[in-house]
Design a protein around this nucleic acid. Structure first.
Lengths: 244, 244
DNA sequence: CGCTGACCTTGATATTGGTCAAGCTCAACA
DNA sequence: TGTTGAGCTTGACCAATATCAAGGTCAGCG
């Protein structure tokens, strides 16, 4: 059954049963409460993870103890697997649950050994890494070319389904703010501005898009557009669990 | 002789002569004048490149025509090779020479085909990509956690050899500014501040470190420290050609 | 030698977003 | 039902950095 769960990740899905069994031998299932730390930044990295349910934030710590959320991991994604190819890897981020979570922890050396037998999987992995590289580059120019409002607008757009008028922020606003590299106060103000302009309405964590057109315009001043869906992989994922 | 040049890159160096010959068949040498565009952002990406000499900047374009330099490529590095694993790749950045340059252009599909025969090279490549991922993450928290002064200080530190007191900025200051995500004016002012504090002295593109200690302090408020040299690959490279 | 244009520097001013301090809201719980 | 505390919002203020507009420097060239 561990094997069945492994298969939920596109990467493991490609492996033969034989290979999966080998991986499973050194893999363990871990259950985490809300707020638990899975690993810390700078810690030696011997394992990587597959999130089965819950939410996990990956974050960097600044010198003053302030943190910057780099990514919010959703179920069926693997993370920290790219470290496997470094000499003496340490985690470049910390990982902490936002909700109670269940993960599978995989031994990296073991997995790497097995990878050597499956060029296909290598290619899959490289595709994945390539994807992430792209994503990070976008992130960087988002940060240096765009205003906070652009980033928020862009984020909200990606979260809203093109048809549905309303959706839930599945993450505490503070965390979202950090993810978007703004202070919580600023985030709050931006939301208020957008509300006053009638672009959207927010009640708690429920967001209702009022004027998608204009939201797009605000975001597009940026360049959100170039992550075409054409060249992204499809990660089959169950819907995320709604937050209180 | 094309093969000899290919070997200057750590990635190609790993290939067998047989494999190299195959790659070389679909590889071409390209000579570029200063300011020439090698490829544009969004262009379909069928080839990747190895820089032999000169300098190339990789940049993103904002909506107002303003550009953000993502990376300044130095000789013996390959770039855009990570795209090879995407479905229908387009370049996520543009590439333009800063100095007259010579590159080898490699057919990506061809190289990928050959890669399938060398898991070793796959691993090498994955290590490289892993490296880059790390670098980009650092870049992101540099942007969101640190001030412009920190970034400039950090950059200057990485460019100075630990012993030598002076070195050359090998790149126009505007470009450097963009690379560090500050306006040229701000860059200029930061340099002036540092000069006034006696931390360094700049004459044209020649930089002299006055107080390395303090420069380090300014940069370290940041977290420059965590890119330990232990886990970076060694790219054997000839010294860059001095500017001006 | 003086002109030209690219690049850099400088000052004045505007904007953005951060910081601090307070108040609000609401769910959990006694 | 009142109390508490976390998370969110608000306002007043401030710092960092961008923007705008000149002016400086210097290499290349007529």
């Amino acid at each position: 059954m561990l094997i069945d769960d492994l298969k939920k990740s596109f990467m493991f899905a490609r492996l033969s049963d034989n290979q999966l069994e080998r991986v499973a031998q050194h893999a363990v299932r871990i259950t985490l409460d809300e707020g638990e730390l899975l690993f810390q930044q700078h810690e030696p990295a011997g394992r990587f993870y597959l999130l089965l349910r819950g939410q996990i934030k990956l974050f960097r710590l600044g010198p003053n103890g302030n943190e910057k959320v780099i990514e919010i991991v959703t179920p069926c994604s693997t993370f920290a697997e790219a470290l496997m190819f470094l000499e003496r890897p340490t985690y470049p981020v910390g990982a902490q649950t936002l909700q109670a979570a269940e993960v599978i922890s995989v031994d990296a050396a073991d997995f790497a050994r097995m990878l050597r037998e499956s060029v296909d999987t290598c290619f899959m992995l490289m595709g994945d890494m390539s994807q992430r590289l792209r994503g990070l580059i976008r992130e960087i120019d988002d940060l240096s070319l765009n205003s906070a409002t652009c980033r928020v607008a862009g984020y909200l757009l990606t979260k809203s389904s093109p048809d549905g008028a309303t959706f839930e922020l599945e993450v505490p606003k503070q965390t979202l703010a950090s993810r978007l590299s703004v202070q919580p106060e600023t985030f709050s103000r931006i939301i208020r501005n957008l509300s006053e302009q009638g672009v959207l309405a927010v009640r708690g964590s429920r967001v209702e898009i009022g004027d998608r057109e204009q939201l797009q315009q605000l975001a597009n001043v940026c360049g959100q557009t170039d992550v075409s869906l054409a060249d992204t992989f499809h990660y089959p994922c169950p819907p995320a669990k709604p937050r209180g």
